[in-house]
Structures are given as C-alpha cells and as structure tokens.
Design a binder for these strands. Structure first.
Lengths: 77, 77
DNA sequence: CGTGTAAGGAATTCTGACACG
DNA sequence: CGTGTAAGGAATTCTGACACG
C-alpha cells in the first residue's frame, strides 16, 4: 500500500493541516464521506488521501453542495 | 515539502509500524539519530522518512554497531 | 444542515528514575 | 550501552447532547 493511503495521522494533525475543526472532520465521517481507521483505544487515524478528500469536501460545501450530494460525487473517484 | 518528510505520525503508530518499543524510538532521539517535531503540548511527530531511518538504526544496532557510530553513518545520507 | 461548545471519561504520551549487564 | 518498567502528570481524543438557524 502506498504511503498516501496509510492511515496514520490523528485528528489533531489533520485539523492543523486542513485548517478545519475536529468537529467538521468528525461530521464528514458521520455523513459517510471519509472512513478513518481506529486504534485499539478508538482513536481515529487518517491518511494523506483522506486529508485531500476532506479539503475537497469542504470546498464543495462552500460551493453550496450538501453532504448527501457529495457522497455521490465522491463515489465516482 | 514531500509527504515523506511531513512530521505527522505519533510515536504509538511508529511503534506499530516498526515493531519497536516507544522506549527504543525515544532513545534514538536522545542519541541524536532522529529529530521528530513536537506539538504545542510536547507530543512527538515523526515522518515516513523518520520511520525508514528508525528501522535502519535498529538493523545496524543488531549488526553490532553503536549509536555513536550510527550518527556518523547517518550524517552521510 | 453543518458547526460550535461544555462535560466527563478514557486513551495516549511525557519525563526522570531505577534496574540490568 | 541499549532497553524494560512502574509512577504521576499532562495533552489529546471520544461520545452524546444542547444550541442555532
């Protein structure tokens, strides 16, 4: 597996890199737009690809799309 | 900066990926062989390159080298 | 709908030290 | 020298809920 797909980054770092709040990041998961892994203790782990997706999601939301629509859009990638 | 150099991985994940103990990983830092970044709270963050280096260090140690010698060897990479 | 926040608990990490050999 | 471990504290993350609009 390429490094871009390795789920090794915790939410705090993702928040820093994307500039988004942890609340937003967790919400996108709730909406089935991203699928982080979990440590044994339940801590979320994201990949660099996830970070890319998260930023795309945010951009689309700013454009007026809803999460349900984004789910379809992301399905084709 | 390439993703391989982005310091975003915490010690627990590094431990899992390398199979080494956190104690060993912190010790290599103490010996000036690796240089993780820190979060505001003081939590260590490693890059994929750091993980590569850590595994090389461990291999060399198994070969009988000492950390002081490894410091010189790593300097030329 | 998408996001902010306060709340309490749990997982993770940190440092300095003692131990072994 | 390189690594294990127990100790206490601090940083980070988790969930479920209330709020707004």
């Amino acid at each position: 597996m390429s490094m871009t797909k390795k789920k090794v980054i915790q939410i705090g770092v993702v928040s820093e890199l994307t500039g988004l709040s942890e609340r937003q990041i967790r919400y996108y998961e709730d909406r089935k737009l991203i699928f982080p892994e979990r440590s044994k203790g339940g801590v979320r782990k994201y990949s660099f690809e996830d970070i890319q997706t998260i930023m795309e999601i945010h951009t689309k939301l700013m454009d007026g799309f809803h999460t349900v629509e984004l789910k379809r859009m992301l399905a084709g990638s």
